[in-house]
Amino acid sequence: MQEGDLVTAAEMADGQQGVVVRVDGEQMMQDRLEALGIRPGRKIRKVSSAFMKGPTVIEVEGCSIAVGFGMASRIFAKTEQTAP
């Protein structure tokens, strides 16, 4: 296993896992995401994303959360990748 690049939750591939590194944006939004368990240090798995900048669904601690595309683009995660 080798640590991959920093990608946003919106960019992650379906099924890909990663660890949240930082969440950008207003404090209010960060608080709401945090209340749902999305904050730095947490392991997440991308479940799906919709067409046309629709919501992204991520799984954190066995719980699925749907977040809008804009928010998903501000959640940065370090992904796990297998070495080439």
Binding site: L36, V57, I65, A66, V67, F69
Partner: peptide, 8 residues
């Protein structure tokens, strides 16, 4: 319109 943020 705020973005969607819900627990599933």
């Amino acid at each position: 319109t705020p973005e969607l943020l819900i627990e599933i």
